[in-house]
């Protein structure tokens, strides 16, 4: 059918009514969309149908439009809500961040606990140190009290020329209390497995009597020792002996010797 033939066929009216079978409808639509004459005929048909259908309406309630608009607005908002379901991704992200945050805080907490333990242990060490320092101080005060008293005599024991040249030990001896305070600050540290042994000496004939091992005597930092139950004496000697001490002094290992 030629385009002009559509004009009088009555097909265009049915096309505008929308009552043609779908394939025929689409075929007419194709032809009409390409032909301006057919288009204006279609518009004319549509115009009279608009008039006719409008005429049949008994008048539409003006409030209806508002209802419809509210309704589609609601539906649009629902759509927005569907869009907000995209926000659930943000929700998940936030949850993951929160979880991360919580884990980080737990880790931080654990680190802090460990740090507290370390600090507590350090504090304990310091306490021990303070106690030890206090004890040391008390000891030194005690020593000082002792050597201030007139009954203690000071005896210098020069270092042995071979074993401890240019040193000396200093002894404070009280024959009233039979106590000896010995400062060996200047003597070298005894090597491992060896200890200093202190001897009291009688001169004629030379008779050494062990008065103790410095390692086993109360001391201040192993430098100032206090020995008791010292027998009547005319001098003191210090020798280096194997751990546990010896019955007689090893004179080759004499470190200091002095007489009263």
């Amino acid at each position: 059918m030629k385009a002009e033939d559509y004009l009088d066929s009555g097909l265009l009216e049915l096309y505008v009514y929308g009552v043609l079978p779908e394939d025929e409808h689409l075929a007419v639509a194709k032809v009409v969309n390409r032909n301006p004459d057919l288009q204006s005929e279609v518009v004319a048909i549509e115009t009279v149908l608009m008039e006719l259908s409008g005429l049949v309406s008994p008048g539409l309630n003006q409030g209806l439009k508002q209802k419809v608009l509210q309704n589609i607005d609601k539906k649009s908002n629902k759509k927005v809500k569907i869009v907000t379901s995209n926000y659930s991704y943000f929700g998940w992200a936030a949850a993951i961040l929160l979880l991360g945050g919580v884990l980080w805080l737990l880790k931080l907490n654990q680190d802090l606990q460990t740090e507290i333990q370390v600090v507590e242990s350090e504090l304990n060490d310091k306490k021990v140190e303070v106690v030890s320092t206090e004890q040391n101080l008390n000891y030194l005060q005690d020593i000082l009290e002792n050597i201030k008293s007139p009954e203690f005599r000071k005896v210098t024991l020069p270092g042995n020329e071979i074993n401890a040249p240019n040193t000396r030990a200093v002894a404070f001896y009280s024959d009233e209390n039979n106590e000896l305070i010995l400062d060996v600050t200047e003597l070298p540290e005894p090597p491992k497995g060896m200890v200093y042994q202190v001897w009291s000496l009688k001169m004629e004939p030379l008779t050494p009597t062990s008065v103790g091992l410095l390692a086993e005597s109360p001391s201040s930092e192993n430098k100032i020792f206090k020995l008791q139950d010292i027998p009547d004496t005319e001098g003191f000697g210090i020798t280096l002996e194997p751990e546990g001490g010896s019955k007689t002094p090893n004179l080759d290992q004499l470190y200091a010797l002095g007489t009263i």
């Binding site: 259908s53 409008g54 309406s57 439009k65």
Partner: peptide, 24 residues
Amino acid sequence: QKNQVAFSQIYDMYSENIHGIVYN
């Protein structure tokens, strides 16, 4: 494209006609 103003104008243009069809 979901323009509500355009929709509202289309309502104004066609609502009486649709009402006529439906009412009939």
